[in-house]
């Protein structure tokens, strides 16, 4: 069990390094092919998920504010609504919920697509044509998903903050929009913006790397793809949560 975990970790690390190497050495190569693929991936891991994220934003605002208001009014601490939203939504739930949804919607598709490409010999065909499979299949996914997760997190957070106010308003909390915004601004620091960007880019890249690794790194047969997908989803989630824990430590340390 431990050995298998270490082997997977080693494989993933090597795969990440190879991808990084290809990204650097082939930064300018075949841009006319790779750039549209990156845009397509941003669309898939970002733009097309917007309706789902709008729904999630409204739900997240309701969950956090609904629960918080009922508790904070009891202790008379309604002035901390903005702070709660920043701590819970901006720092924690926003990025994590985005990452989990992207794993579910796009990460699974990644494993299946690449696993099928591997099983049906498309990857060999790329190699036979002198096309680096990592450059053609993995690099656009890593870049696209990193940007996609970042953009979606920003939208989710904005949506949740707006819907949070809406739910507070519905619950008759005496809070003016200006005061709410002031509370938010007061709770946010410059570091929040930097860490949010770094964290979400890292989430996107990790999801892409883990799912591509499981689809691509070992020779698969068609019947093995479902098993690979299950493993990739589990590992993506664990990796994102572990990374999130690392960021919590960072927050606490600063």
């Amino acid at each position: 069990m431990l050995l298998r975990f270490l082997l997977t970790l080693q494989g993933l690390g090597a795969f990440a390094l190879i991808t990084l190497g290809v990204m650097i050495t082939r930064f300018r190569a075949a841009r006319a092919v790779i750039r549209p693929l990156v845009f397509a991936e941003i669309s898939r891991a970002g733009l097309r998920l917007l309706p789902l994220f709008l729904f999630m934003a409204v739900a997240l605002g309701l969950v956090v504010i609904g629960q918080t208001v009922s508790w904070l009014t009891r202790v008379g601490a309604i002035n901390f609504l903005g702070t709660v939203m920043v701590v819970v939504v901006v720092r924690e739930l926003g990025p994590l919920v985005t990452a989990l949804l992207v794993v579910a919607r796009v990460g699974t598709a990644n494993v299946i697509e690449l696993g099928t490409a591997r099983a049906t010999g498309e990857v060999e065909a790329l190699e036979a044509l002198g096309i680096d499979p990592v450059h053609y299949l993995v690099v656009p996914r890593v870049l696209g998903m990193a940007l996609g997760v970042y953009a979606l997190t920003v939208y989710l957070i904005l949506g949740a903050l707006a819907s949070g106010y809406l739910w507070a308003f519905v619950q008759d909390v005496p809070l003016l929009p200006g005061d709410y915004l002031r509370q938010l601004a007061g709770a946010l620091s410059g570091l929040d913006f930097v860490l949010l960007a770094v964290k979400t880019f890292a989430f996107g890249a990790i999801i892409a790397l883990v799912t591509c690794y499981h689809g691509l790194a070992q020779p698969l047969r068609l019947e093995e793809i479902s098993r690979a997908t299950v493993a990739a989803v589990a590992q993506s989630v664990v990796a994102c949560v572990l990374l999130d824990a690392l960021f919590i430590i960072l927050y606490l340390a600063t």
């Binding site: 075949a30 006319a32 092919v33 697509e113 099928t116 044509l129 096309i131």
Partner: peptide, 30 residues
């Protein structure tokens, strides 16, 4: 050049896109 048994085409690309891909990749063409 290597021609596979069954073609092993890229399934998400049309035949024309399949044929154009090596040209586009190696010559950086749109």
């Amino acid at each position: 050049g290597l021609v596979f048994d069954g073609g092993q085409l890229f399934n998400h690309l049309t035949l024309a896109e399949n044929v154009a891909l090596p040209l586009r990749y190696h010559r950086n063409l749109g």
